[in-house]
C-alpha cells in the first residue's frame, strides 16, 4: 500500500513542483492537466520509437515545454485571459491527441508498445530492516527518484538563488520588482515554461511506467497537482507531503474498491472528490487561522 502510494504520488509531485514555480510567479496554471497529457503521449511515442526511456522522458519534457510556450505566447505575449487560454491548452491536448493517434495508428483508443523497455526499478533488494521504510524508499521506479531529486533542486532554485528570489518577488510584489528593473513578464514566462517541462515529465512518467497510452491517461492529475500546491503551503517540502497524502488516499481507495464493491465508473470521479474535499477543508482551516491571528493582533 505504501509502495503503491509512492508510485501514484510521483507524477503529482513532478507536476506540482513545476506548477509551484508558476504559482509563486503569480500564475495559477490550470493548464497542467493538458500539459501532462501532451507529455504522456509524446513521451511514450518517442520512447517506443527510440527504444530509450531517457529519450522518452526528454520528449515528454519537450512536449510539455512546447505546449507551455504556446500557452505563454497567448496568455502573456498577447495578454489573453490566462484561465481561458489555460482551458484552451487542456482542450487542445485532449482534442488533438486522438487526431494524431488516428492519423498515425488508425485508432484513438489504447496504444500498446510491446517493444518499449520496462522502467527500471532502483535500489531493489536494499533493506533497512523496517518494512514501512523499505516500501517508502526502496525498489521504486526510476521516475520516483527523479521526482525526489527535484524537491531539493526546487528548494535551492527558489530559495537560494537570485533567480528564485526574483521569481517569487514577481508573484508577491510585482510593482516593486518592476521598479527594481526586473523584467517581470520574462520571469513569468520562464516560470510557466518550467511548469510545462515538469508537467511533461510527469506525463511521460505515467505512460512510460504503464507501457501503454490510454485516452485521458492524465485522469485529473493536473488538477490534483494544482491543489497539492496549496495543500503544501506553496513550498516544495509541503508539496512532497501533500502529494504523498494524495498517493495514500488513492491507493487506499483502490483497496477499498474491492472490499466495498464500489462500481468502477463511480471510482473514476473519486480522485476529484478527494481533491475538492481536501481543498475546501484546507481553505476553511486556513481562513479560521487567519481570523484568529487577526483577532489576536487586534486585541493583545
Amino acid at each position: 500500500m505504501i509502495f503503491n502510494a509512492v508510485e501514484i504520488m510521483t507524477p503529482i509531485l513532478l507536476a506540482a513542483l513545476g506548477g509551484l514555480f508558476a504559482e509563486l510567479a503569480g500564475v495559477l496554471n490550470i493548464a497542467l492537466e493538458g500539459l501532462i497529457l501532451a507529455g504522456a503521449f509524446a513521451g511514450i511515442l518517442a520512447g517506443a520509437a527510440s527504444g530509450s526511456l531517457v529519450v522518452g522522458m526528454l520528449a515528454g519534457a519537450l512536449a510539455g515545454g512546447l505546449l507551455a510556450a504556446v500557452f505563454t505566447f497567448f496568455s502573456i505575449r498577447l495578454r489573453a485571459n490566462i484561465f481561458i487560454t489555460g482551458l484552451a491548452v487542456n482542450l487542445l491536448a485532449a482534442g488533438s491527441i486522438p487526431f494524431i493517434s488516428t492519423w498515425m495508428f488508425g485508432t484513438k483508443g489504447v496504444l500498446r508498445f510491446p517493444d518499449l523497455p520496462r522502467l527500471p526499478r532502483l535500489l531493489e533488494g536494499v533493506t533497512s530492516g523496517v518494512g514501512f521504510i523499505d516500501s517508502l524508499l526502496f525498489g521504486h521506479s526510476a521516475t520516483v527518484y527523479l521526482a525526489w531529486l527535484l524537491v531539493p533542486l526546487a528548494l535551492v532554485a527558489l530559495y537560494r538563488t537570485p533567480f528564485g528570489l526574483r521569481l517569487r518577488a514577481v508573484g508577491a510584489r510585482e510593482d516593486s520588482v518592476i521598479i527594481a528593473g526586473v523584467d517581470a513578464v520574462a520571469y513569468r514566462r520562464i516560470a510557466v515554461l518550467i511548469s510545462g517541462v515538469a508537467a511533461g515529465l510527469a506525463g511521460a512518467a505515467i505512460s512510460l511506467r504503464l507501457g501503454v497510452y490510454l485516452p485521458n491517461i492524465s485522469a485529473g492529475r493536473g488538477w490534483i497537482a494544482l491543489v497539492a500546491i496549496y495543500l503544501g503551503y506553496r513550498h516544495p517540502i509541503g508539496i512532497l507531503i501533500a502529494a504523498l497524502l494524495f498517493g495514500f488516499t488513492e491507493s487506499l481507495a483502490g483497496a477499498a474498491q474491492g472490499l466495498l464493491a464500489i462500481p468502477g465508473t463511480v471510482l473514476l470521479g473519486l480522485p476529484y472528490a478527494i481533491t475538492v474535499v481536501a481543498m475546501i477543508t484546507y481553505s476553511a482551516l486556513r481562513a479560521r487561522g487567519q481570523r484568529r491571528r487577526r483577532f489576536m493582533d487586534a486585541h493583545f
Partner: peptide, 24 residues
Amino acid sequence: YLWGTDELITSFLISAAIVPSVSY
C-alpha cells in the same frame, strides 16, 4: 465567500467528480 476557496478549481473538480456517477 466564506473561506476564499478558489471557485474556479472547486467548480471544475465537483463537476468532474459527479460526471462518472451520473453515467453510472
